[in-house]
Design a protein around this nucleic acid. Structure first.
Length: 435
RNA sequence: GGAGUGUUGUCCGAGCGGCUGAAGGAGCAUGAUUGGAAAUCAUGUAUACGGGUAACAACCUGUAUCGAGGGUUCAAAUCCCUCACACUCCGCCA
């Protein structure tokens, strides 16, 4: 959530910034007008409340002295009614203001490439060269099916499209990848967390998924009493439980930055992406992801974003997977982010780079929504900044390994870094078919 | 799932419908004392949102906040309702 004060005091600047993210300036005018009305009503209400408190004190005194206070009580009854009306107005105005405020995206950083969509993203750097083959490389979904380590048919029977079974060496590979990620992240100073996979509405709002993106997620409805929904949602990313771990907290500044990492399932409805990436592991309703989250002091967040990005890159480097780093344009970056670097891994069969990690500095946007604060050396309480990045998407990593490490005979060489995690297995060969 | 108890500031803990932003401790900070420290004494020790003076900081003032939300009342930490969470006992269960 943006700071209404910042908008109020720098209206033109705010309009300009948010215009690059597709927000119409009139919306901010409306917001500021509501805010002005709200504050006006507050002044009136607060003056009346001050009067009421004053008179109430006198009534109390009179009662103690056994004097009559009937007139004052009668007057205050009217004042009370007025206050009630005004407070109702204030509530309505606050609600209107929140409605807009909760749906405005974060201010983009000055360094962000400006543009409405991904075509304005800027490549920052490349690591290694796209893997070369002297034959036509297979797509990972074919490799997975032919090796009998990934089974989409069974998953669509048992669950639905965009679900998958991992089998044998495939399951082992998935497990190897995330254990490797967790170990590496832990070595880099991240504390491992195992978070819950269902979270409440306050949490979804705290990290910015709600109220705007309710269609993108799966929410649990308890059938026996539809009147009282439990309001638990399957997490679309571990970012939600990791950041909300600190919701409402005042952290001792000595303990910042806090770095945490977690493996979790990620559930996404993928509403609106019908027809895109229908094959393979790229776009699933359920996948596993290792996430990294940082809670930092505001003055450190830009440096921490670079560190976070490098931590994610380090994983790809150790797996020897070619990738590039892309700075997202103002129009392409996520709702909560001020600046995002995407890591895109080379996918030979598609002859292109595909997103495998997204590292964002959310500045104080989530911290304000979730009220995550810290006490600095002077004892003052301030909002923190939060950052998050995938380290990394596990399914997509498996896909990248299959494609980049494939051999002409259809087997897949295990990346050196993963061999210990694969119990010494160096090559993935076909699994037994059961039918 | 059933029955009961509880949730107060950084922590512990008191609290009769008005004099309670909240007793009393502890902790922390500053000052005094000391050659220095301990002990002792004194003072201070919330956050949010308004308004004003002023504007890298700050000060004055109002309002709100005692798990959350609603209600009763001139007035609610205190009474009523709903919910969340914690603990205890019973039942069930990986």
């Amino acid at each position: 959530m943006l700071d209404i004060k910042v908008i109020r005091e720098n209206l033109d600047w705010a309009k300009e910034k948010l215009a690059t993210r597709g927000i119409k300036p009139e919306q901010l005018d409306e917001l500021v007008a509501i805010d002005a009305k709200r504050r006006e009503a507050m002044v009136q209400s607060e003056n009346l409340k001050a009067e009421r408190n004053e008179v109430s004190k006198k009534i109390a005194e009179a009662k103690r002295n056994k004097e009559d206070a009937a007139d004052a009580i009668k007057n205050m009854r009217e004042v009370g009614a007025k206050i009630k009306d005004l407070d109702k107005d204030i509530d309505e105005l606050t609600e209107k203001q929140e409605y807009i405020l909760l749906r405005l995206p974060n201010f983009p950083a000055d360094s962000d490439p400006i543009g409405p969509d991904e075509s304005y993203n800027e490549e920052v750097r490349r690591w290694s060269e796209p893997t070369k083959f002297d034959y036509a490389p297979k797509a990972h979904w074919d490799l997975g099916t032919d090796l009998n380590i990934l089974d989409w048919d069974a998953a669509s029977k048992v669950s639905a499209a965009r679900f998958v079974y991992y089998k044998g060496a495939g399951a082992l590979l998935e497990r190897a990848v995330y254990n490797f990620f967790l170990d590496e992240n832990t070595k880099e100073g991240y504390t491992e967390i195992i978070p819950p996979s269902l979270v409440n509405n306050d949490s979804m709002q705290g990290t910015g998924q709600f109220p705007k993106f309710t269609e993108d997620v799966y929410t649990i409805v308890e059938n026996d009493d539809p009147e009282v929904p439990r309001n638990l949602t399957l997490i679309p990313t571990a970012e939600v439980p990791l950041v909300n771990y600190f919701r409402g907290d005042i952290i001792d500044g000595k303990n910042l930055p806090i770095n945490v990492t977690a493996l979790s399932p990620a559930f996404r409805s993928e509403a609106g992406s019908a027809g895109r990436d229908t094959r393979g592991l790229i776009r699933m309703h359920e996948f596993r992801k290792v996430e990294m989250v940082k809670v930092v002091k505001p003055e450190d967040s830009w440096e921490e974003l670079e560190k976070l990005t490098h931590n994610a890159e380090h994983l790809l480097q150790k797996l020897n997977l070619p990738y590039r780093v892309v700075a997202l344009s103002t129009g392409d970056a996520s709702f909560t982010s001020a600046k995002t670097y995407d890591l895109e891994v080379w996918m030979p069969a598609q002859d292109t780079y595909r997103e495998i990690s997204s590292c964002s500095n959310c500045t104080d946007f989530q911290a304000r929504r979730a009220q995550i604060r810290y006490r600095d050396e002077d004892g003052k309480v301030k909002l923190t900044h939060t950052l998050n990045g995938s380290g990394l998407a596990v399914g997509r990593t498996v896909a990248a390994i299959l494609e980049n490490y494939q051999n002409e005979n259809g087997t897949v060489t295990v990346p050196e870094a993963l061999v210990p995690y694969m119990h010494g297995m160096t090559k993935i060969t076909p699994e037994v078919k059961w039918h």
